[in-house]
Structure formats: structure tokens, C-alpha cells
Design a protein around this nucleic acid. Structure first.
Length: 507
RNA sequence: GUCCCCAUCGUCUAGUCAGGUCUAGGACACUGGAUUUUCAUUCCAGCGACCGGGGUUCGAAUCCCCGUGGGGACGCCA
């Protein structure tokens, strides 16, 4: 944060260092939104326009298996691949590993594609998009696998056993008792495979057992199809979770058997549980993208947080427009150790993004949430809604909690919060204060924040009280709550009739 | 059990590759103040870490070794 004094107030400084650049984010979000007040759809695409990239030969892919929901770890892997493609001006391929026909359903695929779109991860080749290296569903690529298998067989690198096809390693064979498998296993003394990982550096591992590339039911195995597809689709960089690091040696053996040069591998750290042991599993709270969609998180915030889970720009920047992240994203900034998932920090980022939104956009996003809560309907006065939300935005923590904040504005029958009520009554009878307030408010000709504030001041003075004496009482009577939006904004927006009625009704 | 990867505040991390500027910086969380005459805003401060032990060196968070701890892989799952 050290900057020469002269640079302190330059726009550049703000853009590079300050939270001020959050305005740029807001603009970005706004730009991605359709015209204000059109109901927000779930799959609002996030704009990634407005930054220049140079085309390159880089080809990366995200290859999920659509077995249910969109896991946060998968999303982060997709995100890193996407970032790298956009950073290099390369191509981002989406390939669906749907070889397991039992677990893969159309709904699962839809959930995945929706999640990708929600996060703004657009793919250049893949489902619904096509491309010259298709098909992009593994279930439709059997012919290709047959061809590649034939090549391996022709080279004498396969054999059949129990109806399955095995990949045959090169090297001297011996039999050993394996404690883990609790059986005698045939092993191979093979040369260590070297992986020059873009994140982890030089890694060596020995593959000492032949492995299945085609199951006895005819399905091709993961290692085989993965390598064949990456080869056939001319993938140049494989960015995936560290759980695949030990598989990589096997994959490289296959590349070598095909006489091909392996792609660059980049193994990214795993996302670990918030507490407890091990990696984040789908059962963990907060593990699924769907959860953030349904809780009305801002996709930009989730994406920004995910970018920082395992990668960082090496300075103290955290909240950044996606264009800046794309510009700065590189393997050098990727960490090696697993990162625990911190929902609180995500929530904080979400709040920051929410507050930075232009009011129009904020209104456009919050309205459906209020509708879902039954507070607002089609007939609602748009100006009133926007006035209310204008009051709320600076105080809002999340869209999810907006309804409880705005209840007094949209429900005629307010409920008095017992705890807040008790706090007030402990300090003396509030109805006496209200009685002092009422005539003054009834006589207030103007109904603005300023005039109301003046009226409160006059009442306080006339009764020898501090104005603060009246504030919490008025708030409780009018909203039923002990906290919330600023008092005079509350009174002004609520309007004279409602305020007076509620004060009179309060007991 | 075997192999691979990793190791800085409670959490995410900067600093490590090219050892000194690190009495270790930032963010979240937490605690305490201030300001906002009310408030779920804002500001400030505090708390708080180099896993342990050996080396190498004038000097180590940074390099080496050994422990320990954490993570992952070892399927006819992907």
C-alpha cells in the first residue's frame, strides 16, 4: 500500500489499490444485467467483454462427470481452466465424461451447465456449442477409443485378462505381497515417470502395476479415455485437482505409448472442509454451487472468492473485477497446499459486492427475493420499492436476509420484537414519549428526513429531553424492530399515515 | 501398509525460488474504542503465526537433513 503521496489520489491508484475500484465491479455487474426491472433469471450471464486478449494455441478443458450437483471444487477447477484460457487467449473446452450411464442423467447435466453459466464460465467448445474436435460427450466417442486402443494393441502394449483389457507396462516383472490389497500382486520394475508440473515443479513417481483401460463390460476406463480425449482434442494444458497428481504418471505412460508429447500439467490444491479433516465433500454445507444460487449470493462474489482459493495475485488485492483477475492469473500465483473453505469470508465478499451495486441493479436483483418472500408483488409501486431498497442497500448483508430488513415497509401488520420491546420498556413508559411526539408529527407540513429530524428535535427540547430518547421508541413503534435502516429514512419512506397509525396503535 | 504432495496468525494468504530491508505485511473472524444525537454504516486500535530438532552461514521464515503433522493416490469410479 506504499504509494508516493502524489499518487495517492490519482484514479490509477484507486484502481490498483483501493476499494474504490469496486465501482468498476459494479459497472461490470450492471453491464451484464439486462435493463433494470426486468426479472432476473437464474442463468444471468456475467460479462467478460471489455478486455483484450491475444489469440493463442492454448487449449484447456474442464471434464466433469455429471453425476448430480455442481461441487464447489469442480467449479473452482472449471474456473481456473477458464481463467487460464481467457488469460492466454486460448480455447476453453467443456467435455462431458458421461461414460457411467447409470449415474449420468439429463438433469445432472443441466445442473452442471446452469452452474457454469451462473458463474459466467462460458466455454468455446462443448455441449450446445459444438466445435471441430467433437463429439464432446464421452458416451459418443466410442469409435475414437476403439481406434486408439487398436493402436496400443498393435504396438503390443495391451493384453486381456478376465475379459478386461490391461495396459502393459515396460520392465521386469515380479510378484509381491501387497499389504493394502492383501494379495499377491504382479508388479513391474519400471522407470520413474517425471512430471514437470506447472504448479508443483519436478515430481517423480513409479507406476508399478498394469492397469485396466477397458472394463470387461466393454466400457473404457477413466485413465484411457482421459488421455485419448486430451490427445484427440489437442489439449495443451491440463489443470486439475491435486487428487489427480498420482494418476498423472499413469497418464504420461499412456502418452508415451502413443508416441505423443504429454500436455503441461498443473495440479491445483484441493479445497478442504471448513473444519474437521479431509477435502470438501458434497455433503458439506456450502459445498454446492446450487446452494449459493438459491441463497441469492452474487455470482461475481462467489467467483471472486473462488479465484482466491488457491491462487493470489501476490499483492493485497482481493476484491477485483474479473477482467483484472484474468489479466493477472497465472500458474505462478497458484498455491501448493490445500485451502480450507471459509464461508464467512465469502459472505463478506458478497456483502461488499452487494453494496457496490448501482441502486437500479440492486433493486433489480433484490425485488425477486422480496417477491419470493411474499412481501412484494407485481402491483407494487416501483418507486416505493426502490426508495426502500435505497435505504437498505448500505446496511444490507446479503440478499438472503433482505426480507427481514424490509418487513416493516411492506407488511401493514407489524410484529413487535419482544426483546426490543423489553429493552425499551425497561427505561420507562414509551407511550408517554409517543404522546409527546404525535401532535408534533401531525402538524409537520413537510414529510422529509430533514423536517422529521427537526420535529423530533423540537419535541425533545420542549420536553427537556435528549432527542435520542425518542429515536428507539419511534423505531420500535413504527417498525417493531430494535435496529434496521436509519430512522428518518424509515419514517420518510414509510409515509405520514403509516407512521402516525402505528404510533397510535403502539402499546 | 506403499508411494506422492504440502507445512507462516483460528481461517485465506504475502514474504521462500535469487538468505539480511521481517521487531513477519494484508484480508476474514474475534475483542476494544471512536464517530454516526437512533441503526445491520464507517473509522481506528488490539489480539494473533514462521510445526519441532539438527545442520550450513557473520546472518535462516527463507537453503539442507531428520522427525512430526496435514492432504492425496493406491478400483474392471471419475
Amino acid at each position: 500500500m506504499d504509494a508516493p503521496a502524489s499518487a495517492l489520489y490519482s484514479p490509477t491508484f484507486f484502481l490498483q489499490h483501493g476499494r474504490f475500484s469496486i465501482t468498476a465491479l459494479a459497472v461490470e455487474v450492471a453491464a451484464s444485467a439486462p435493463a433494470p426491472r426486468i426479472p432476473r433469471t437464474k442463468n444471468q450471464a456475467l460479462s467478460t467483454k471489455n478486455f483484450s486478449t491475444v489469440m493463442s494455441d492454448v487449449r484447456v478443458r474442464f471434464a466433469p462427470s455429471p453425476t448430480g450437483f455442481f461441487h464447489i471444487g469442480s467449479a473452482r477447477t472449471a474456473l481456473f481452466n477458464w481463467l487460464y484460457a481467457r488469460h492466454t487467449g486460448g480455447t476453453f473446452v467443456l467435455r462431458i465424461e458421461d461414460t457411467d450411464s447409470v449415474r449420468n442423467t439429463p438433469e445432472a447435466l443441466q445442473a452442471l451447465l446452469d452452474g457454469m453459466r451462473w458463474l459466467g464460465l462460458d466455454w468455446d467448445e462443448g455441449p450446445e456449442k459444438g466445435g471441430e474436435f467433437g463429439p464432446y460427450f464421452q458416451s459418443e466417442r466410442t469409435g475414437i477409443y476403439e481406434d486408439y486402443l487398436a493402436r496400443l494393441t498393435a504396438a503390443g502394449r495391451t493384453y486381456e485378462q478376465d475379459g478386461a483389457v490391461f495396459f502393459k507396462l515396460l520392465g521386469e516383472r515380479y510378484v509381491e505381497f501387497d499389504k493394502y490389497k492383501n494379495a499377491e500382486i504382479e508388479k513391474v520394475r519400471s522407470e520413474p515417470v517425471v512430471v514437470d508440473d506447472a504448479v508443483r515443479g519436478h515430481v517423480e513417481r513409479v507406476v508399478d502395476q498394469d492397469f485396466v483401460i477397458r472394463r470387461s463390460n466393454g466400457d473404457f476406463g477413466f485413465h484411457f479415455v482421459n488421455v485419448v480425449d486430451d490427445l484427440a482434442m489437442k489439449i495443451t494444458h491440463v489443470i486439475r485437482g491435486e487428487d489427480h497428481l498420482s494418476n498423472t504418471a499413469r497418464h504420461i505412460e499412456l502418452y508415451k505409448a502413443f508416441g505423443a508429447t504429454p500436455p503441461v500439467f498443473a495440479h491445483i490444491p484441493l479445497i478442504l472442509k471448513s473444519d474437521g479433516r479431509g477435502k470438501m465433500s458434497k455433503r458439506e454445507s456450502g459445498a454446492l454451487i446450487e446452494e449459493y444460487v438459491s441463497r441469492h449470493f452474487l455470482a461475481e462474489a462467489v467467483r471472486n472468492y473462488l479465484c482466491l482459493l488457491g491462487w493470489n495475485p501476490k499483492d493485497d488485492r482481493e476484491i477485483m473485477p474479473i477482467g483484472e483477475i484474468i489479466e493477472r492469473f497465472d500458474f505462478a500465483g497458484i498455491n501448493k497446499d490445500g485451502a480450507r473453505f471459509d464461508e464467512q469470508k465469502l459472505a463478506h465478499m458478497n456483502t461488499e459486492y452487494l453494496r457496490a451495486l448501482p441502486l437500479e441493479t440492486f433493486t433489480w436483483m433484490a425485488t425477486p427475493v422480496l417477491e419470493a418472500a411474499g412481501l412484494v408483488d407485481e402491483a407494487a409501486d416501483e418507486d416505493y420499492v426502490q426508495a426502500v431498497l435505497g435505504l437498505c442497500q448500505p446496511k444490507a448483508r446479503s440478499l438472503e436476509t433482505m426480507p427481514e430488513l424490509v418487513v416493516p415497509f411492506f407488511k401493514e401488520e407489524i410484529e413487535i420484537d419482544p426483546a426490543a420491546r423489553e429493552k425499551i420498556f425497561k427505561k420507562g413508559d414509551p407511550t408517554a414519549r409517543l404522546a409527546e411526539l404525535l401532535p408534533a408529527l401531525e402538524n409537520t407540513t413537510e414529510w422529509t428526513e430533514a423536517s422529521l429530524e427537526a420535529a423530533f428535535g423540537a419535541v425533545a427540547e420542549a420536553n427537556g429531553q435528549k432527542p435520542t430518547m425518542y429515536f428507539p421508541i419511534a423505531r420500535l413503534a413504527v417498525s417493531g424492530q430494535g435496529g434496521g435502516v436509519p430512522l428518518f429514512g424509515l419514517l420518510a419512506v414509510l409515509g405520514r399515515d403509516r407512521v402516525l397509525d402505528r404510533m397510535k396503535a403502539f402499546s
